[in-house]
Amino acid sequence: MTTHNELRLLPWSGPDGNPCYLSAEGSGGYLSRLADNTEAAQLEMSGELLEHALEVLGDGEAEPNELRLLAMDMTEALRDVRRVAISRGRRLPLTDTPAHEGGDEGPRLPAAAFG
């Protein structure tokens, strides 16, 4: 299997805020499993935060400080989910997709799919 990138973006940053990477060669090692578990926890927490955000925003009586804290928490969760998506996207196998006429490489849907 050929991947986009031989380095895996880890779900945490280094001490100076720079991204951390792991060689993708040994995907079953301790750090890979730790990264997998961390990603799963981040995705789970973001789902719980989304439910909380819907409750707070649906209340209509949230205080400005509560909304500010919610926005900060949502920003952190979005950063984590984005990093997971980038990391997983880089590890997808490369495939040979057939070239379509006109340069459109997206899926082809019948007109009926649009109502």
Results as ranks from 00 to 15, higher is better:
A111D: 13
R91I: 10
L22A: 11
A71H: 03
E51A: 15
E51Y: 06
N65K: 10
A24G: 00
E6M: 07
M1F: 04
A53I: 05
A85W: 07
V84H: 08
L50M: 13
G102I: 07
D59F: 14
A53T: 03
R88W: 01
Y21S: 05
G60W: 09
S32W: 03
G106A: 14
G28L: 04
G89H: 04
L10T: 06
D59P: 12
P15W: 06
H52R: 15
N18E: 05
G103K: 02
D104C: 03
R83V: 05
L49N: 09
E25L: 12
M1P: 01
N18L: 08
M45A: 15
I86D: 05
L54P: 05
N65Y: 03
E63S: 14
R8P: 00
G115R: 14
A53M: 11
R108V: 13
A53C: 06
D104H: 04
D36F: 02
R8S: 01
T2I: 01
E25F: 07
E6Q: 06
L10D: 07
D59S: 15
L78Q: 08
L7S: 06
G60F: 08
G14E: 03
D96V: 12
L31C: 01
Q42T: 11
F114V: 12
L10M: 11
D73Y: 09
D36V: 00
R83G: 07
P107D: 15
A24T: 00
R33I: 09
C20D: 02
D80C: 10
H100I: 07
R79Y: 04
P11W: 09
E66L: 10
D104F: 07
R33S: 04
A40M: 08
G58N: 06
E39C: 10
H4K: 15
Y30R: 15
R68D: 12
G106W: 08
R108K: 13
V81I: 06
G115N: 15
E101W: 02
R108W: 11
E25C: 06
A62E: 11
L22I: 03
T95R: 10
V81F: 00
D80W: 01
D96C: 04
R91H: 11
P98L: 15
E63C: 12
A85I: 14
G14P: 00
E55K: 14
T75G: 11
C20F: 02
L109V: 15
E76H: 01
L70W: 00
N37A: 14
A40P: 01
L54Y: 12
C20R: 12
F114C: 10
E66Q: 11
S46Q: 04
L94K: 04
D96T: 03
R79M: 11
E48R: 12
A24F: 01
L34K: 12
L31M: 07
P93L: 09
G115H: 13
L9C: 02
G47Y: 01
R68G: 10
E48Y: 09
P19H: 02
D80L: 08
E61Q: 15
M74W: 04
